[in-house]
Nucleic acid binder design. Structure first.
Lengths: 400, 400
DNA sequence: AATACTTCGTAAGTAAATTTAACTATCTAA
DNA sequence: TTAGATAGTTAAATTTACTTACGAAGTATT
């Protein structure tokens, strides 16, 4: 649905442009903003008045002279607003109050303890209630990363198997209860936006994050914006068949990527291998193959155990193959892995990159580097906040 | 690179919005445009004055009254401009003069006769020279669909193996020679845009066209715009490994999708099967298995030959698997097949759809229908014209 | 047939926002 | 001390959409 253009939209766009410029540059003068954005100096001044009236920008001192009057530096007033970020993709529901710079100010964690359906929904309310109570500056809104199929446009959780949710109109529910803007997306998508916004800058406007946890999925940022498909489903690479007649998957099909690369699969494959390799360190680290956990695998891998390496090599090859399919569809781009698998380091990356190079057009795989995200366990929490920043303030860091 | 917004852009946007609305509706009054676009009536009148001055719109009569003054109907003046569409993806280079409605007014075809490199480039000049000579209304520009890896943003053919082209700055060359706007994209991408713009409307803003010819590739339209990757490479699904240790591909890897689904592969696989199945009709249609051509396969298939069906079934399964990878990356969407394989009809579609359903998340495959494009051999020619319309006039049909 | 009501298109004036041009305030360097 | 450079602001001009109003041309009703 294409829409008409108005003066109001022009102003909103330019306001977001100025705000994004200050956000990205840290400290910058009005004159420099004008040079960077190609807006005129009067326009920049005008917009800055608005942004300062909202408290989003503040003057912070003077720059040294460059041959004339010293410039007044502006910066984002990071604590002018509170963002609520919610991560529903763990065993415990987590939320945090986050400032505009992505600094976590306050955390709340509520154990799920097997709850699902309405009880789980109540827990979300509890989480948000607690966070709102702790807020110390005006709330910008609520950003949510949730597992399952999420219709980000309409704010509906179409399906989240492990929470036993179907067609949960979470945006409507929360907006009516809290009267705040609410944005949501799939946990992997949110993670990608988090890395894009708060991760170590790579100046790329396209980014794919493959998150490996209980599930496997990809979040896709194209041209600086989250790509969620129409209306949903982008990046659901965990549920494409990669092993003919493979294991059954909770999605109903067989041999899905998830069945051979998620954390449970890694553990199960390692357990099977440990039984056949009595000399493996694995059998020293665990009393019995069945007692092998993900942590055991990490430990054995760190010790150089060949069985663990074998499992991780195959996981890497599967992820590399998935990356190949991603880049022949999207074109070459940076692909970052997230989740607990980061502990397998360069060995995993090498296996993945090798598979990618073998399996995709050289011109594309050459420009596609596989690496790890630069963020830790808070990636979804911060990604949810990033979603809010993007949607509500038009934050849209543009590098290069 | 995010840019500032200006009044000028606002006007351009609204002008394109009005033009697109008239284009899509065929005949429509100013008042109706205002209702559809939410622009005010005076603004629409103002914009229409401009568009009529450019000759792009014309008044065409009066609508019956709906309770008041009869409305003046507007329509696109289809012959107000000439589009040059170029198809470089065949044995002969083809070009056409096309009007704004996508009607081909004049054709030129120049046999390539094995030329490549500079000689092939000269042939492009010859083609355009001939078309410009035949133009009978102002030229809007040149749109080109070419095989190979194309950087559509910079107008560079990065690599076209069969023409022995590398880093051909075709846009610069043609713009300097003809002083006309030039746009280009990969042949598959252009085909997708052609189907999106001129095909039988399906009201979907997302569309994937998989073109099977000498090569195999996909063109992707997202949200009504061609998606070409950054800077290129989107939809190069022909060069992802689908058969472990499969045949060598011209791209350098082995077992690419292209090696098992392109037209040569179909012929080769049929030849092999014909040798092992002496009772097949194939051996009646051709004096010797080596003499089997693509047409022979079509004929045998039409007769219900089991060997041909077997080959086509497998091709369909491969294409369905490719579709599965496409939709788990892009989300569910309409996938249309193009090229000579359309002669295999519903049988091919069924094989593909079945594979898709088995191999991708049900929630996505259910919303993804595989079909054939509604256009014939001119799809690239018309797609090139569509590219020009989109880029130059902001044509952007929005359905729903 | 007269009248009231609808709808279309346009005209004149208003409002929003950018741009242009000019001005003031600082700062550097000769 | 002064000329030149840079930053930021002010005021007028410009662009463009919006608001309000009006005449033209229909239909429906009395």
């Amino acid at each position: 649905m294409t829409k008409k253009a108005t003066h109001e939209q022009t102003r909103i766009h330019n306001t977001q442009l100025v705000f994004s410029t200050v956000y990205e540059r840290g400290e910058i003068s009005r004159a420099e903003i004008a040079r960077v954005t190609h807006l005129t100096r009067p326009t920049v001044s005008d917009v800055v008045v608005d942004l300062m009236a909202q408290g989003l920008l503040e003057e912070v001192g003077r720059a040294p002279s460059t041959g004339g009057k010293r410039a007044i530096l502006l910066r984002v007033n990071a604590d002018a607003r509170c963002l609520i970020g919610i991560d529903l993709a763990r065993e415990d529901f987590r939320g945090a109050l986050i400032n505009l710079h992505g600094e976590i100010k306050h955390r709340v964690s509520l154990p799920l303890q097997g709850r699902d359906g309405t009880a789980a929904l109540e827990l979300v309310y509890e989480l948000v209630d607690a966070l709102i109570k702790a807020a110390c500056s005006p709330l910008l809104g609520i950003g949510i990363g949730t597992p399952g199929l999420v219709d980000a446009v309409n704010g509906v959780i179409y399906q989240a198997v492990n929470l036993n949710w179907r067609d949960i109109h979470l945006r409507t529910l929360l907006q009516e209860r809290y009267n705040l803007p609410v944005y949501m997306a799939n946990d992997c998508q949110v993670a990608a936006l988090g890395e894009y916004t708060f991760g170590e800058n790579s100046s790329a406007r396209d980014l794919v994050v493959i998150h490996v946890g209980k599930g496997v999925g990809a979040g896709i940022v194209l041209n600086g914006r989250l790509f969620h498909g129409n209306p949903l489903g982008a990046g659901e690479i965990g549920h494409v068949t990669v092993v003919e007649n493979g294991e059954h998957c909770q999605c109903g099909n067989t041999g899905c990527l998830e069945t051979v690369t998620n954390s449970r699969a890694i553990v199960r494959q390692t357990q099977a291998l440990a039984q056949r390799a009595p000399q493996s360190i694995l059998n020293q680290l665990a009393p019995h193959p069945d007692a092998i956990t993900f942590e055991t695998v990490c430990e054995a891998f760190a010790e150089g155990d060949e069985a663990a390496r074998q499992v991780i090599r195959e996981v890497g090859q599967h992820l590399g193959a998935a990356a190949a399919h991603l880049i022949v569809v999207l074109g070459g781009c940076r692909i970052l892995l997230a989740g607990r698998i980061t502990c397998f380091g360069q060995f995993l990356l090498d296996a993945a990159q090798e598979a990618l190079n073998k399996r995709a057009l050289a011109a594309l795989s050459q420009t596609s580097e596989i690496g790890f995200v630069s963020m830790g366990a808070d990636i979804i929490l911060l990604g949810a906040a990033a979603l809010l920043l993007h949607e509500e303030l038009g934050l849209f860091p543009y590098n290069g």
